[in-house]
Amino acid sequence: MQVTNKWKEDRAFLLFIAPWIVGFLCFFVGPAMASLLYSFADYNAITKPIWIGIDNYTHLISDQVYLKSLRNTLYFVFIGVPVTVGFQIVLSLLLNVEIPGIRVFRTLYYLPYLVPPVATVIIWIILFGSGDSVVNSLIVLFGGSNVDWMGTEGLIKPVIISIGMWSSGGAVLIFLAGLKGIPRSLYEAARIDGSGPIRTFFNITLPMLTPTILFTVVMQVIYYFQMFTEAMLLSKGGPNYASQTYMMNTYQVSFRDLNFGYAMAQSWVLFLLILVITIVLLKSSQRWVYYEGSEKGGSNS
Protein backbone atom coordinates (compact mmCIF):
# COMPACT_ATOMS: atom_id res chain seq x y z
CA MET A 1 0.00 0.00 0.00
CA GLN A 2 2.96 2.31 0.63
CA VAL A 3 3.88 2.33 -3.05
CA THR A 4 0.51 3.71 -4.08
CA ASN A 5 0.71 6.96 -5.89
CA LYS A 6 -0.57 9.92 -3.88
CA TRP A 7 -2.76 11.18 -6.69
CA LYS A 8 -4.37 7.79 -7.03
CA GLU A 9 -5.23 7.92 -3.32
CA ASP A 10 -6.77 11.35 -3.71
CA ARG A 11 -8.78 10.22 -6.72
CA ALA A 12 -10.14 7.16 -4.93
CA PHE A 13 -11.00 9.31 -1.91
CA LEU A 14 -12.81 11.91 -4.00
CA LEU A 15 -14.76 9.23 -5.86
CA PHE A 16 -16.00 7.75 -2.60
CA ILE A 17 -17.04 11.08 -1.16
CA ALA A 18 -18.46 12.36 -4.47
CA PRO A 19 -22.09 12.20 -3.22
CA TRP A 20 -21.17 14.46 -0.31
CA ILE A 21 -19.31 16.91 -2.57
CA VAL A 22 -22.37 17.21 -4.81
CA GLY A 23 -24.70 17.61 -1.83
CA PHE A 24 -22.37 20.03 -0.06
CA LEU A 25 -22.08 22.31 -3.10
CA CYS A 26 -25.75 22.17 -4.19
CA PHE A 27 -27.49 22.14 -0.84
CA PHE A 28 -25.03 23.99 1.31
CA VAL A 29 -22.46 26.26 -0.31
CA GLY A 30 -24.77 27.42 -3.10
CA PRO A 31 -27.76 28.20 -0.87
CA ALA A 32 -25.52 29.77 1.79
CA MET A 33 -23.92 32.08 -0.78
CA ALA A 34 -27.32 32.96 -2.26
CA SER A 35 -28.69 33.67 1.18
CA LEU A 36 -25.77 35.93 2.03
CA LEU A 37 -26.28 37.81 -1.23
CA TYR A 38 -30.06 38.19 -0.91
CA SER A 39 -29.74 39.31 2.71
CA PHE A 40 -28.69 42.65 1.18
CA ALA A 41 -31.79 42.85 -0.98
CA ASP A 42 -35.50 43.44 -0.85
CA TYR A 43 -36.58 40.11 -2.34
CA ASN A 44 -39.92 38.31 -2.47
CA ALA A 45 -38.85 35.44 -4.77
CA ILE A 46 -41.27 36.65 -7.47
CA THR A 47 -40.06 40.04 -8.67
CA LYS A 48 -36.42 40.92 -9.23
CA PRO A 49 -34.40 41.66 -6.08
CA ILE A 50 -33.84 45.32 -5.25
CA TRP A 51 -30.42 45.91 -3.66
CA ILE A 52 -30.79 47.86 -0.44
CA GLY A 53 -27.36 47.45 1.19
CA ILE A 54 -27.39 46.76 4.90
CA ASP A 55 -30.97 48.00 5.43
CA ASN A 56 -32.22 44.51 6.33
CA TYR A 57 -29.63 44.31 9.07
CA THR A 58 -30.20 47.80 10.46
CA HIS A 59 -33.95 47.22 10.42
CA LEU A 60 -33.49 44.36 12.91
CA ILE A 61 -32.60 46.80 15.69
CA SER A 62 -35.98 48.53 15.55
CA ASP A 63 -38.14 45.47 14.82
CA GLN A 64 -39.94 44.94 18.14
CA VAL A 65 -41.34 41.49 17.30
CA TYR A 66 -37.92 40.36 16.10
CA LEU A 67 -36.24 41.63 19.25
CA LYS A 68 -38.82 39.89 21.40
CA SER A 69 -38.26 36.61 19.52
CA LEU A 70 -34.53 37.02 20.02
CA ARG A 71 -34.99 37.62 23.76
CA ASN A 72 -37.25 34.56 24.00
CA THR A 73 -34.71 32.40 22.23
CA LEU A 74 -31.90 33.65 24.49
CA TYR A 75 -34.13 32.77 27.46
CA PHE A 76 -34.42 29.25 26.08
CA VAL A 77 -30.66 29.00 25.57
CA PHE A 78 -29.52 30.51 28.87
CA ILE A 79 -32.25 29.05 31.09
CA GLY A 80 -33.58 26.09 29.11
CA VAL A 81 -30.17 24.55 28.37
CA PRO A 82 -28.78 24.50 31.95
CA VAL A 83 -32.10 23.32 33.38
CA THR A 84 -32.45 20.57 30.77
CA VAL A 85 -28.84 19.36 31.00
CA GLY A 86 -28.95 19.42 34.82
CA PHE A 87 -32.13 17.37 34.70
CA GLN A 88 -30.49 14.91 32.30
CA ILE A 89 -27.52 14.44 34.64
CA VAL A 90 -29.84 13.74 37.57
CA LEU A 91 -31.79 11.26 35.45
CA SER A 92 -28.68 9.43 34.30
CA LEU A 93 -27.46 9.16 37.92
CA LEU A 94 -30.86 7.75 38.83
CA LEU A 95 -30.68 5.20 36.01
CA ASN A 96 -27.01 4.35 36.59
CA VAL A 97 -27.68 1.76 39.27
CA GLU A 98 -27.39 -1.98 38.98
CA ILE A 99 -30.64 -3.29 40.39
CA PRO A 100 -32.99 -5.89 38.88
CA GLY A 101 -35.31 -4.42 36.26
CA ILE A 102 -33.18 -1.33 35.59
CA ARG A 103 -33.09 -2.09 31.86
CA VAL A 104 -36.87 -1.83 31.68
CA PHE A 105 -36.70 1.56 33.37
CA ARG A 106 -34.03 2.76 30.93
CA THR A 107 -36.09 1.56 27.98
CA LEU A 108 -39.21 3.35 29.13
CA TYR A 109 -37.46 6.59 30.15
CA TYR A 110 -36.02 6.79 26.64
CA LEU A 111 -39.36 6.38 24.86
CA PRO A 112 -40.56 10.04 24.95
CA TYR A 113 -37.45 11.02 22.97
CA LEU A 114 -38.94 9.16 19.99
CA VAL A 115 -42.39 10.73 20.04
CA PRO A 116 -42.82 12.91 16.93
CA PRO A 117 -42.79 16.61 17.99
CA VAL A 118 -46.28 17.28 16.68
CA ALA A 119 -47.62 14.35 18.72
CA THR A 120 -45.76 15.67 21.78
CA VAL A 121 -47.49 19.01 21.31
CA ILE A 122 -50.86 17.23 21.23
CA ILE A 123 -49.96 15.39 24.45
CA TRP A 124 -49.05 18.72 26.04
CA ILE A 125 -52.35 20.24 24.92
CA ILE A 126 -54.15 17.33 26.62
CA LEU A 127 -52.03 17.70 29.78
CA PHE A 128 -51.76 21.48 30.10
CA GLY A 129 -54.77 22.71 28.13
CA SER A 130 -56.98 25.42 29.56
CA GLY A 131 -59.84 24.43 31.89
CA ASP A 132 -60.13 20.88 33.16
CA SER A 133 -56.91 19.48 31.71
CA VAL A 134 -55.07 16.73 33.56
CA VAL A 135 -52.52 18.94 35.27
CA ASN A 136 -55.15 21.48 36.27
CA SER A 137 -57.42 18.77 37.66
CA LEU A 138 -54.56 17.50 39.78
CA ILE A 139 -53.93 21.02 41.06
CA VAL A 140 -57.62 21.45 41.88
CA LEU A 141 -57.73 18.05 43.63
CA PHE A 142 -54.93 19.23 45.86
CA GLY A 143 -56.78 22.42 46.64
CA GLY A 144 -55.33 24.83 44.09
CA SER A 145 -57.11 26.60 41.26
CA ASN A 146 -56.96 26.33 37.47
CA VAL A 147 -53.87 27.74 35.81
CA ASP A 148 -53.90 29.10 32.28
CA TRP A 149 -50.60 27.47 31.25
CA MET A 150 -50.67 28.45 27.60
CA GLY A 151 -52.20 31.87 28.09
CA THR A 152 -49.88 33.31 30.74
CA GLU A 153 -46.80 35.13 29.50
CA GLY A 154 -44.60 33.99 32.35
CA LEU A 155 -45.58 30.31 32.09
CA ILE A 156 -45.48 29.44 28.43
CA LYS A 157 -41.69 29.29 28.12
CA PRO A 158 -41.27 26.96 31.13
CA VAL A 159 -44.03 24.76 29.68
CA ILE A 160 -42.09 24.55 26.40
CA ILE A 161 -38.86 23.77 28.30
CA SER A 162 -40.71 20.95 30.05
CA ILE A 163 -41.17 19.37 26.60
CA GLY A 164 -37.42 19.44 26.05
CA MET A 165 -36.90 17.88 29.47
CA TRP A 166 -39.46 15.17 28.79
CA SER A 167 -37.58 14.18 25.62
CA SER A 168 -34.27 13.81 27.44
CA GLY A 169 -33.82 10.15 26.47
CA GLY A 170 -31.12 10.56 23.84
CA ALA A 171 -28.89 12.73 26.02
CA VAL A 172 -29.44 10.46 29.03
CA LEU A 173 -28.12 7.53 27.02
CA ILE A 174 -24.98 9.48 26.22
CA PHE A 175 -24.58 10.47 29.88
CA LEU A 176 -25.05 6.83 30.94
CA ALA A 177 -22.27 5.81 28.56
CA GLY A 178 -20.14 8.61 30.03
CA LEU A 179 -20.79 7.37 33.56
CA LYS A 180 -19.84 3.83 32.52
CA GLY A 181 -16.52 5.20 31.29
CA ILE A 182 -15.46 6.46 34.72
CA PRO A 183 -12.90 4.00 36.18
CA ARG A 184 -14.20 2.13 39.21
CA SER A 185 -10.83 2.52 40.90
CA LEU A 186 -11.53 6.24 41.37
CA TYR A 187 -14.67 5.48 43.33
CA GLU A 188 -12.90 2.88 45.42
CA ALA A 189 -10.13 5.32 46.22
CA ALA A 190 -12.74 7.90 47.26
CA ARG A 191 -14.49 5.33 49.45
CA ILE A 192 -11.25 4.43 51.19
CA ASP A 193 -10.58 8.12 51.76
CA GLY A 194 -13.96 8.31 53.47
CA SER A 195 -15.54 10.62 50.90
CA GLY A 196 -19.35 10.80 51.12
CA PRO A 197 -21.67 10.46 48.11
CA ILE A 198 -22.04 14.22 47.60
CA ARG A 199 -18.31 14.90 47.73
CA THR A 200 -17.68 11.92 45.45
CA PHE A 201 -20.17 13.34 42.96
CA PHE A 202 -18.54 16.79 42.87
CA ASN A 203 -14.94 15.56 43.04
CA ILE A 204 -15.10 12.55 40.74
CA THR A 205 -18.34 12.05 38.81
CA LEU A 206 -18.89 15.62 37.68
CA PRO A 207 -15.31 16.35 36.55
CA MET A 208 -15.08 13.00 34.73
CA LEU A 209 -18.39 13.76 33.03
CA THR A 210 -17.37 17.18 31.69
CA PRO A 211 -16.52 15.99 28.14
CA THR A 212 -20.03 14.52 27.87
CA ILE A 213 -21.51 17.66 29.40
CA LEU A 214 -19.78 19.81 26.79
CA PHE A 215 -21.14 17.65 23.96
CA THR A 216 -24.66 17.66 25.38
CA VAL A 217 -24.65 21.40 26.06
CA VAL A 218 -23.64 22.12 22.46
CA MET A 219 -26.42 19.83 21.20
CA GLN A 220 -29.00 21.46 23.49
CA VAL A 221 -27.86 24.98 22.53
CA ILE A 222 -28.50 24.12 18.89
CA TYR A 223 -31.86 22.52 19.77
CA TYR A 224 -33.11 25.54 21.71
CA PHE A 225 -31.77 28.05 19.18
CA GLN A 226 -33.81 26.29 16.51
CA MET A 227 -36.94 25.81 18.60
CA PHE A 228 -39.85 25.90 16.18
CA THR A 229 -42.47 23.15 16.18
CA GLU A 230 -43.29 23.25 19.88
CA ALA A 231 -43.67 27.03 20.07
CA MET A 232 -45.50 27.26 16.76
CA LEU A 233 -48.10 24.59 17.45
CA LEU A 234 -48.51 24.79 21.22
CA SER A 235 -49.13 28.49 21.59
CA LYS A 236 -48.67 30.02 18.10
CA GLY A 237 -46.00 32.27 19.56
CA GLY A 238 -48.38 33.81 22.08
CA PRO A 239 -49.54 35.08 24.44
CA ASN A 240 -48.33 38.54 23.42
CA TYR A 241 -45.35 36.98 21.56
CA ALA A 242 -44.08 35.39 24.79
CA SER A 243 -43.26 32.16 22.94
CA GLN A 244 -42.40 33.67 19.56
CA THR A 245 -39.06 32.00 18.87
CA TYR A 246 -36.37 33.19 16.51
CA MET A 247 -36.98 30.42 13.98
CA MET A 248 -40.70 30.90 14.12
CA ASN A 249 -40.35 34.62 13.52
CA THR A 250 -38.04 34.06 10.54
CA TYR A 251 -40.48 31.49 9.18
CA GLN A 252 -43.34 34.00 9.34
CA VAL A 253 -41.26 36.79 7.83
CA SER A 254 -40.50 34.55 4.85
CA PHE A 255 -43.57 32.44 4.24
CA ARG A 256 -46.31 34.71 5.59
CA ASP A 257 -44.89 38.14 4.68
CA LEU A 258 -42.83 36.89 1.69
CA ASN A 259 -40.02 39.15 2.90
CA PHE A 260 -37.25 36.72 1.94
CA GLY A 261 -34.35 39.17 1.91
CA TYR A 262 -35.11 40.25 5.47
CA ALA A 263 -35.58 36.63 6.58
CA MET A 264 -32.18 35.69 5.18
CA ALA A 265 -30.53 38.53 7.06
CA GLN A 266 -32.16 37.10 10.21
CA SER A 267 -30.87 33.62 9.37
CA TRP A 268 -27.34 34.93 9.09
CA VAL A 269 -27.54 36.74 12.40
CA LEU A 270 -28.80 33.48 13.96
CA PHE A 271 -25.90 31.60 12.42
CA LEU A 272 -23.40 34.14 13.80
CA LEU A 273 -25.03 33.92 17.25
CA ILE A 274 -24.79 30.12 17.30
CA LEU A 275 -21.22 30.32 16.03
CA VAL A 276 -20.15 32.82 18.70
CA ILE A 277 -21.79 30.86 21.52
CA THR A 278 -20.32 27.56 20.29
CA ILE A 279 -16.84 29.06 20.01
CA VAL A 280 -17.12 30.58 23.49
CA LEU A 281 -18.26 27.19 24.83
CA LEU A 282 -15.43 25.30 23.14
CA LYS A 283 -12.81 27.89 24.15
CA SER A 284 -14.00 28.00 27.73
CA SER A 285 -14.13 24.20 27.78
CA GLN A 286 -10.34 24.11 27.96
CA ARG A 287 -10.77 25.47 31.47
CA TRP A 288 -13.64 23.32 32.70
CA VAL A 289 -13.51 20.11 30.69
CA TYR A 290 -11.31 17.43 32.14
CA TYR A 291 -9.57 15.20 29.63
CA GLU A 292 -8.14 12.03 31.01
CA GLY A 293 -4.47 11.42 30.21
CA SER A 294 -3.54 12.71 26.77
CA GLU A 295 -5.01 15.83 25.23
CA LYS A 296 -7.15 13.71 22.89
CA GLY A 297 -9.34 12.41 25.72
CA GLY A 298 -13.02 12.24 24.98
CA SER A 299 -13.50 15.54 23.21
CA ASN A 300 -16.49 15.69 20.92
CA SER A 301 -16.18 19.07 19.32
Binding site: S35, F260, A263, I274, L275
Partner: peptide, 17 residues
Protein backbone atom coordinates in the same frame (compact mmCIF):
# COMPACT_ATOMS: atom_id res chain seq x y z
CA UNK B 1 -18.54 22.21 10.70
CA UNK B 2 -21.70 21.65 8.67
CA UNK B 3 -22.93 19.47 11.52
CA UNK B 4 -22.91 22.54 13.75
CA UNK B 5 -24.58 24.93 11.33
CA UNK B 6 -28.36 25.12 11.58
CA UNK B 7 -30.08 23.90 8.44
CA UNK B 8 -32.35 26.93 8.66
CA UNK B 9 -29.60 29.18 7.34
CA UNK B 10 -29.82 27.47 3.98
CA UNK B 11 -33.49 26.63 4.10
CA UNK B 12 -34.98 29.71 2.47
CA UNK B 13 -32.54 29.73 -0.47
CA UNK B 14 -33.23 25.99 -0.86
CA UNK B 15 -36.92 26.78 -1.01
CA UNK B 16 -36.28 29.38 -3.70
CA UNK B 17 -33.95 27.00 -5.57
Amino acid sequence: ATLMIPSQVTLIPMYIL
